[in-house]
Computed example of a mutant assay.
Amino acid sequence: MTSSHIDRIRTDIAHNARVWNYWLGGKDNYSVDRAVGDQVTSLYPSIGEVARADRAFLGRAVRYLAGEAGVRQFLDIGTGLPTADNTHEVAQRVAPEARVVYVDNDPIVLTHARALLTGSRKGVTEYVDADAHDPERILRAVGRTLDLDRPVAVMMLGILNFVLDTDTARSIVRTLMGAVPPGSHLVLTHPTLEPALGGAGNAEAMAFWNANATPPITARSRGEFASFLDGLEVLEPGIVSCSRWRFEAGPEVAQFGAVARKP
């Protein structure tokens, strides 16, 4: 790790990647992350279920894409800290030759990049230090590893909620999906306040987060989430709680999930 990465690590304020790691039962977090994570849980007790459901959705989506859909290239933006069943592990279990590029700009994640770079012998697993707000930079960087003339699964799980302006978030998605060919897929999850999914209690927790942690977060409605999928073929079962995407058991969580194909 370079000195610039060390300088970027803040241990005096909670950070999303580390708090999410804490909720998932990981050890790559600090006391400030645990304190904020516990307070958010007290305000919104189902947040741990959301974290686990999001991770389980990732596994189901990647297994489908690498298996039935035949996708062999994955671009995972905002990957966070490594836990069990990371994208490359799931994809290369199904298709050992799969190529996976992770993108994140969190210095803590950078310190664990080596743990991510252990793919199958036949496949490729790489890591790019870049910000989701700069899709052009991401595309330039991943072009060294992925063939952008062949289908790519673009994965943005719990990342567009950190892009506070919805028009900007839509532009990021359009830029990324505009650079990949037909047969590519977009995989999204995003928190919501919609009462039908139990999101009403999330507002106070998000306000606390934005006052005490980084980066700030926003929730979006079903309509706003759907706008990210404009021009794409949304696969069955459509826009649902991520806990219910191709899985019937368990409670719904206030986190939309969807997988869409570029026609």
Rank of each mutant, 00 (worst) to 15 (best):
R246W: 00
S227N: 08
Q255W: 09
R244Q: 11
A226S: 13
T218V: 14
P216W: 09
G198F: 11
E248W: 02
G231N: 01
G250H: 05
N210Q: 09
G231A: 03
S221W: 06
F228R: 04
T214R: 14
P191S: 12
E224D: 12
P251T: 04
Q255N: 09
S221V: 04
F228H: 15
R246K: 15
W209N: 08
T192H: 11
A196Q: 10
N202E: 14
A211T: 09
P216N: 13
I239L: 00
S221A: 09
P251N: 03
R220F: 04
L193W: 13
S227M: 03
P195H: 07
G199N: 11
W209E: 09
Q255E: 09
Q255V: 07
S241W: 11
C242R: 01
G250F: 02
G231K: 01
L232T: 08
F247Y: 12
V234L: 06
A254L: 07
T214Q: 13
M206F: 13
D230E: 14
A219T: 12
R246E: 14
A196E: 10
M206L: 15
A211G: 11
A249C: 01
N210C: 02
E248T: 07
I217Y: 02
E236H: 01
T218Q: 14
G201C: 05
V253E: 08
A249Q: 05
R220I: 06
L235P: 03
G198P: 05
A203Q: 15
A249E: 08
R220A: 02
G250P: 03
P215D: 10
L197K: 12
S243A: 15
A254F: 07
R246F: 00
A200Q: 14
L229R: 10
A203D: 14
E236K: 00
F208Y: 15
F225R: 10
N212A: 10
A211E: 15
R220C: 02
R220N: 00
A205I: 07
E233C: 02
G198V: 08
